[in-house]
C-alpha cells in the first residue's frame, strides 16, 4: 500500500503530552473526513499507546516518544508509537484484557481498547530496548454510505 501523506511528532514522556499527542494525530487523520466516532476511536487508541510509554516504558525515567502517522491508499490511517523504554517480556500476557503489571489505578484495558477501536494492532518489543505499537484503521467517513 502506498503512503500518500505522513506526519512525524516526537514528544517527551510527560503526561501533559498525552492530550497533545491524541489531538495531533486525530487532527492529521481528519483529512480523510472521518465520522465523529471514528475520530474518537483514533484519539482513544493513541491516548492508550502514548500513556503506556509514559507509565510503563519509561516509568520513573524520562525519554522520547516517537509518533508517526501515515495516510495510505484507500483511506487507511496507520499510526506508529515507539519508545526506547524497558520493553515487554511477554507480549501475549500484556495484551490480555485486564492484565496490568502495575495494578492500582490501572485497569489493564489499554491494549483491549486499542484492539477493539482500531482494525489492526501490531506490537513489537525488545526487553531493554523498547516497544513499537502499530495501529491501523480504515476510515469509511462521513461521505461513504456503503
Amino acid at each position: 500500500m502506498k503512503v500518500t501523506n505522513s506526519m512525524r511528532t516526537i514528544v517527551d514522556s510527560r503526561s501533559v503530552n498525552e492530550g497533545f499527542a491524541r489531538v495531533t494525530v486525530s487532527t492529521f487523520a481528519s483529512q480523510l473526513d472521518p465520522t465523529v466516532e471514528e475520530l474518537s476511536d483514533i484519539k482513544t487508541a493513541v491516548s492508550e499507546a502514548v500513556t503506556n510509554c509514559i507509565v510503563h516504558a519509561y516509568r520513573e525515567k524520562s525519554g522520547k516518544i516517537y509518533i508517526s502517522t501515515d495516510i495510505l491508499d484507500d483511506s487507511i490511517v496507520r499510526i506508529k508509537i515507539r519508545d526506547r523504554g524497558c520493553g515487554i517480556d511477554d507480549i501475549q500476557q500484556a495484551m490480555e484484557p485486564l492484565y496490568s503489571s502495575l495494578g492500582g489505578e490501572r485497569a489493564g484495558l489499554g491494549f483491549a481498547v486499542m484492539e477493539s477501536f482500531m482494525d489492526k494492532i501490531k506490537v513489537r518489543s525488545t526487553p531493554g530496548k523498547g516497544t513499537t505499537v502499530t495501529l491501523q484503521k480504515k476510515i469509511n467517513g462521513k461521505y461513504n454510505h456503503d
Binding site: S40, T44, T51, G104, E105, G108, G110, V113
Partner: peptide, 10 residues
C-alpha cells in the same frame, strides 16, 4: 468529553 482506560481505572 473524552476518556480512555484511565476513566475506568478511576
Amino acid at each position: 468529553t473524552f476518556m480512555d482506560s484511565s476513566g475506568i481505572g478511576l
